[in-house]
């Protein structure tokens, strides 16, 4: 894996350019994320204390459900007119495709989070804790784990029959450690964190992200050529 980052960046830039020109995709994913938050509000509210307790769980699930749509989209644009076959002829190692898609999805989901999370903070009446920089770290690590596996599994699911159901079916059970750790770390940081739990969960997130970043990079060659 020496050179190849310029190519990966080019693929990421291409994907993001497509998204920017057809804003409908991003806008509807954001709207869906906010709709899910509102639905969670109906399911759990209107009591303010109950909403505040449930806020980390509701927010992470809203992010997950909205992000899944982004992952399938990122390969769907390649399926039209045999674009993927052309991409495979690209004079670069195969992992650059994965790296490019990963970077584009990170930007997409990062932007999604930047809009959905503040809305959630307002809707669920969350008070910003003094240790908010750590909370940002948790959000970044959690999102990274979700995007890594999401990008990888979407490479398969988007090219199978029944991709709408297959991607979440494969992805959600695999993401349980990330979701659990992100929720628990967020919950701990939003409260006083008397049990000092946040540190352990953050370490778990770092471990998960590293293990699956390496594993998906190694496995991607086998997944894309089929």
């Amino acid at each position: 894996m020496t050179s190849g980052w310029p190519q990966a960046l080019a693929i990421a830039a291409k994907d993001l350019r497509i998204e920017r020109r057809s804003k409908a995709g991003f806008n509807s994913v954001v709207a869906l994320g906010i709709t899910i938050l509102v639905l969670f509000g109906f399911a759990l509210g209107p009591d303010a204390a109950a909403l505040r307790d449930a806020a980390p769980g509701a927010l992470w699930l809203a992010i997950l459900f909205a992000a899944v749509l982004a992952f399938n989209r990122s390969y769907q644009v390649e399926l039209d007119a045999g674009a993927l076959d052309a991409l495979l002829l690209y004079p670069a190692p195969r992992w650059t495709i994965y790296a490019g898609k990963l970077l584009a999805n990170l930007a997409f989901v990062g932007l999604l989070i930047a809009i959905v999370v503040p809305v959630g903070i307002v809707l669920f009446q969350v008070t910003i804790p003094p240790r908010w920089p750590l909370l940002l770290l948790v959000v970044a690590l959690g999102a990274f784990g979700i995007v890594t596996l999401g990008t990888f599994y979407a490479a398969m699911a988007s090219r199978s029959r029944a991709r709408e159901v297959l991607l979440p079916l494969l992805l959600f059970p695999m993401l349980i450690p990330v979701i659990l750790a992100s929720m628990e770390a967020s919950k701990a940081l939003l409260t006083a964190d008397l049990m000092r739990a946040a540190g352990a969960w953050i370490r778990l997130l770092v471990g998960f992200d590293l293990v699956f970043l390496v594993a998906t990079f190694l496995a991607f060659d086998h997944v894309i050529e089929g």
Partner: peptide, 10 residues
């Protein structure tokens, strides 16, 4: 075969 091998390993 390739996809399920990757999914099985992960």
């Amino acid at each position: 075969a390739q996809w399920s091998a990757a999914v099985g390993i992960l």
